[in-house]
């Protein structure tokens, strides 16, 4: 009786524990499937023209996505100019000035988390109502600003977290030498947390680099070089979307190539940032 019971329990134990391992392998395996399949297809269609040429008209083979690469870079630049300073300084406020309690810091933390959870497509609508509709045209500005708004919450919270990781004794040490609070923050606390903050920003940037939804109706897309910053502008993610859902085979091939480039960049930045992070002094 007890023997059979313990046999059953042992069997359950072994089966379930093996299952946990199986699922882990499946989950991790899917990364390699994704990478492998994308690399297999993308590499195949990737060539120098992809980086240097404009898209060709339908039916004409060849061409590339040079305009989308430049467009993505432009919009990410705008996004960085918004997301990094606002997120960084807002994070400095929360960690160094705001304190744990108080209504205002609470509201800031609350809305930051709220904004972070807002679906990116909704941010897109918002950017459209503010930046596109009143001006009656799509632009790289609008796309970049939409991405920038998405960057702020994560930049802010990660900055706050890394600054909080700096021990208070650092602050006291600097203040005891006669440094003002501001000098303490900018010459001791922030440098101590710098590696973490930078890697947080890199992860943030990598995340918005792949965002498609907020660009669909802010920057739209384009098959040509956009002059300046105030015209519809192509980006890699939107191109991937448009080409993947199109009925043309050669567009699908371009989508694979673009997907491969985008994923390679995103993962590269992630790996670098996490590598830096693991060697950060504090946290």
């Amino acid at each position: 009786m007890t023997n059979t019971l313990s046999f059953r329990r042992r069997a359950v134990n072994n089966v379930m524990l093996s299952l946990t391992a199986v699922f882990t392998v499946l989950v991790v395996g899917s990364l390699f499937v994704i990478l492998g399949y994308l690399a297999y297809n993308g590499w195949h269609f990737l060539n120098w023209d992809f980086f240097t040429k404009l898209p060709t008209p339908v039916g004409e083979p060849g061409g590339g996505m040079a305009n989308a690469i430049v467009g993505s870079a432009k919009m990410l630049l705008v996004a960085t100019m918004i997301g990094v300073p606002f997120g960084f300084l807002g994070g400095v406020y929360l960690s160094e000035f705001g304190g744990e309690h108080g209504l205002f810091p609470f509201l800031v933390r609350y809305t930051t988390d709220l904004l972070n959870g807002v679906p990116s497509i909704v941010i897109g609508i918002f950017a459209w109502t503010v930046l596109v509709r009143p001006r009656h045209h799509y632009s790289a500005w609008a796309g970049g600003i939409a991405l920038g708004i998405m960057m702020v919450p994560i930049a802010l919270r990660s900055t706050e977290e890394f600054l909080q990781g700096v021990p208070n004794s650092m602050r006291e040490g600097a203040m005891a030498l006669g440094a003002s609070k501001a000098w303490t923050i900018f010459t001791v606390v922030i440098p101590a947390a710098m590696k973490g903050i930078i890697s947080g920003m890199m992860l943030d940037l990598a995340r918005v680099a792949g965002e498609t939804a907020p660009l669909l109706f802010t920057a739209l897309s384009s098959r040509y070089w956009s002059k300046g910053w105030d015209e519809p502008t192509a980006s890699l993610p939107v191109m991937i979307f448009n080409y993947a859902v199109s009925p043309y085979d050669d567009w699908h091939q371009q989508a694979w190539a673009a997907g491969f480039v985008l994923l390679a960049l995103v993962l590269l930045v992630n790996i670098i940032a996490r590598g830096v992070l693991s060697r950060a002094t504090y946290k």
């Binding site: 989950v27 899917s30 990364l31 297809n41 792949g210 498609t212 979307f241 993947a244 995103v266 992630n270």
Partner: peptide, 22 residues
Amino acid sequence: LTFLIELLAAVPSVIYGLLGIF
């Protein structure tokens, strides 16, 4: 393994869509 799984979380959704389709 967790590092790899977190990389998986960083894959852009349009890439998931691409693989979904094809």
